[in-house]
């Protein structure tokens, strides 16, 4: 019996390690290597190419029939809720320190998420936004990304540290501040996701009725202005890097105008 249990734990552990490695390999293809960031660094000082980038972006925005940035107003939906979270060093901090002072894209996720229209899709979209913004250091410094796990059991601060390191690899002065946060436990998490309106289910094994590692959820990304007000909510059905960039720029123009 004990041997069986040990065997099960060993298999489960191996599966966990293998899936983590596979996940890393799968995601690492989307992550810029150091050479690429250097190239971007060169690009950011090269105005003609910067213009080319902008032209490419504007073309994509036009293709999506999006109104020009600054010509529309984003609703003030609700104040970004506060809560207790753990940073990647395990420090207990208030979420509010990551939801004000910058233009913030915040999303809930879990590292084991394998739903192509869920967390991985959010990650690639946000990474594209990051790559665009980092062409213009003055812009990228004003933007922050926040990922909060709704799987505190597996997504420990140590795990968050690994993800954060990966996301912020080759950080330069102009890089976007990308934070990975978790919570002490599910009791702390629930009020937070409830406040954000981010419902999530636990998938149960149909035979045993026990929890699986899946947390089915409708993907949401929240755009929060520097005052800590949620100004847009995106979901899989309505999400593109161009839309995010356009909305961030709209908020920046709003700030410039002193609205």
């Amino acid at each position: 019996m004990i041997q069986n249990l040990q065997y099960k734990y060993l298999v489960a552990g191996l599966i966990f390690i293998a899936s983590t490695l596979l996940g890393y390999i799968a995601l690492s293809q989307y992550i810029p290597s150091s050479g690429k960031v250097d190239a971007f660094s060169a690009l950011s000082s090269s105005k003609p190419i910067e213009k080319e980038f902008n032209k490419e972006l504007q073309t994509r925005i036009a293709e999506q029939k999006l109104a020009a940035a600054g010509t529309y107003e984003l609703q003030k939906i609700f104040n970004a809720p506060d809560g207790d979270v753990l940073d990647s060093k395990g420090n207990a901090v208030k979420l509010s320190q990551y939801t004000s002072g910058k233009y913030t894209l915040l999303t809930f996720f879990y590292d084991m998420c394998a739903d192509a229209k869920g967390c991985p899709y959010a990650f690639t979209t946000m990474h594209t936004v990051k790559n665009y913004l980092e062409k213009t250091p003055a812009l990228s410094k004003q933007v922050r990304f926040v990922n909060i796990s709704f799987d505190p059991e597996r997504d420990t601060p140590m795990m968050m540290a690994g993800l954060e390191k990966r996301a912020n690899r080759n950080n330069k002065d102009f890089s976007i501040d990308w934070r990975y946060l978790t919570t002490k436990n599910v009791d702390v998490l629930i009020p937070l996701i409830d406040a954000y309106g981010q419902n999530v289910d636990i998938a149960l094994d149909k035979d045993s009725g026990k929890r699986t590692m899946e947390y089915p959820h409708v993907l949401k990304i929240y755009l929060i202005d520097p005052k800590g007000v949620i100004r847009e909510i995106y979901s899989t059905t309505y999400l593109s890097p161009e839309m995010l960039l356009n909305d961030i720029e709209t908020l920046m123009i709003e700030t410039e105008k002193g609205v």
């Binding site: 293809q29 991985p120 899989t236 890097p241």
Partner: peptide, 16 residues
């Protein structure tokens, strides 16, 4: 590499 990233993102968008 940018091309690869663009492809990857495009693929992700298509998959999404």
């Amino acid at each position: 590499k940018l091309k690869a990233l663009t492809k990857a993102v495009a693929m992700a968008v298509v998959v999404g």
